[in-house]
Design a binder for these strands. Sequence first.
DNA 1: GAGCCGACGTTATACGTAAAACCTAGGGCG
DNA 2: CGCCCTAGGTTTTACGTATAACGTCGGCTC
Lengths: 336, 336
Amino acid sequence: MARGSTRPTSRDVAQAAGVSQAAVSLVLGDKWRGRVSEATAERVREAARDLGYRPNLAARNLRLGRTRTVLLVVPALTTEFFAGVYTGAARVAAEHGFGVVLYPSPEGIGPARDPFASAQAALDGVIASSMAADALTAIRGEALPLVMLDSDPAGSLGAATVNLDIADGVRQVVEHLLSLGHRRFLHLAADVPSWTFEVRARELAARLAGVPGTSVRTARAPISIEGAVAATEAALSVPGPRPTALVCDDDKLAAGAYKAARRLGLRIPDDVSVTGVDDLALATAIDPELTTVRLDAELFGERGMQALLAVLEGRSPEGGDIPVHLLVRGSTAPPA
Amino acid sequence: MARGSTRPTSRDVAQAAGVSQAAVSLVLGDKWRGRVSEATAERVREAARDLGYRPNLAARNLRLGRTRTVLLVVPALTTEFFAGVYTGAARVAAEHGFGVVLYPSPEGIGPARDPFASAQAALDGVIASSMAADALTAIRGEALPLVMLDSDPAGSLGAATVNLDIADGVRQVVEHLLSLGHRRFLHLAADVPSWTFEVRARELAARLAGVPGTSVRTARAPISIEGAVAATEAALSVPGPRPTALVCDDDKLAAGAYKAARRLGLRIPDDVSVTGVDDLALATAIDPELTTVRLDAELFGERGMQALLAVLEGRSPEGGDIPVHLLVRGSTAPPA
DNA sequence: GAGCCGACGTTATACGTAAAACCTAGGGCG
DNA sequence: CGCCCTAGGTTTTACGTATAACGTCGGCTC
């Protein structure tokens, strides 16, 4: 307790243990083998414990020129998907002595929309979802080591990318629905500018292009239940033969589609089949349970963090998309 | 570009502008009125812009002894409720030049379960949900300015608290159900050690204690759909007169109750009425839409941050619980 | 017995910033 | 004319840490 109520510093510990500040740093930094005697080391550790010493991170970060902290930039946290990504990333980070700070892309937070103004912390690197579009330009401006999640590998100039194999997910959905006998599709597309949604639209069109007698229309909605209800209701009300299969970019959109179908007096899956993507809790809460593409959010986060660690260590991150798989539930059946 | 590829420092800017480092600090810190001429100031700003200078936050934090960063500790981010809390807190923080770092309480992240190991950043204060129980002891050990969310005002030794008026929410639920004619209640309680859930149980019992002919049973479940299904199915299967009203601590639990009811062949609201708390997106996704107590998550976050700012400035935070209100939807009706 | 080496430390320095203390003209004022 | 004041800076210092560079002393080798 050098003076009053301020936090104890390594110098205070040194004084209490009767050694120099350098010795404290060596002992507590676990670099003392052959430099400090075991007895002295123990005295230092005891003094640190007694004083409740915690190193000043700002000072350490300044000294080392690195923070062992990375920023995870995600879109607004309105589903548990990115919670899973965080969990996976944080787990891998913790194993390597890193911390992860979360930045949910702003929805009217401050004028600057600048992740780095919010997370004042000094950072070693960034993992960013391509869905957090607003934040991306600020991120590039920082010139920090960067890993993009679900981003166009060709378009992400230099930045490493980790992607879900969503194209394969679409393939599984299409094959499932085709094998049930569906031919007229409605694509309920997320109205969000992200590569992953572009892939879904492109892949769906490509898969159906080869199959005679099929057709696909597109409706767009923001990722929210209300938005999906309106878009779906409109799309299902146009004249002509009604689509029998509704392929949604996301479980939330699918939930909206359920409500729209109910309003129109259509039954699921008898009158129309519905599929989603994500496998949120929502997917099994609604009735019938939703056939959806399960994404392993935690693995996604783990791989993202591993890629960033690789970049930080000058290694090149391992490639390979993350597999996804279709869960067939009650919302899909042969058309009437 | 003093040497190579490292980030430019204020000294680099000074050299480029032909002034001293101190002048740069004054100009960029907006403290130059009457100390530096407008022309020089402009030269400095231009040099900073050209070099892409961003101050080193570790150094600034060390120098100032404060970080203008606070930690928001929440339970695992599996609903959008805490996303709203974050948004509100971050908005108020941004208005005061603060940043908010999110720490979702761990679910197997690292051995230490220490929020401060994860958020390596140096912190000025903490806002913590009482639901993030695992993290609380570590937080108290840090002796940082602390605001607790939904925590017992009497039991939070010294720490400021900001609470939702959940007791009033329970009152509204009970009055609504009583007025519909319900007398036999089942309380589906969240199996989470938090003051807010204790209040719900206590208030429910207290409100019914005064009404003759009423009874209430309790079932406990973790906050997840599957857990709620099992608990509800068991509770509704015991012999004797079946409860007609199911009061759930949370919308997710209510969603589980829906599924349990369906499995037992019970219709909502004809055979059993159900209420929740939160008003998640889930509440309007399920059919019928859920009667629930709406919590204003963003306001909750705003008030939490305001309270923390008050503590940091030595003011005493303003009291008063945050009002909540019941949204009556299709899941409640008179008993058969 | 000179030289060297290992064990056990200490002293000194740098990281980049903010700001206190200090310097220097030139002009106004008595 | 001597003095102070103000504008417009500069020099210096401190924040707390990690670590490179430097001592010192006893014992061992040759």
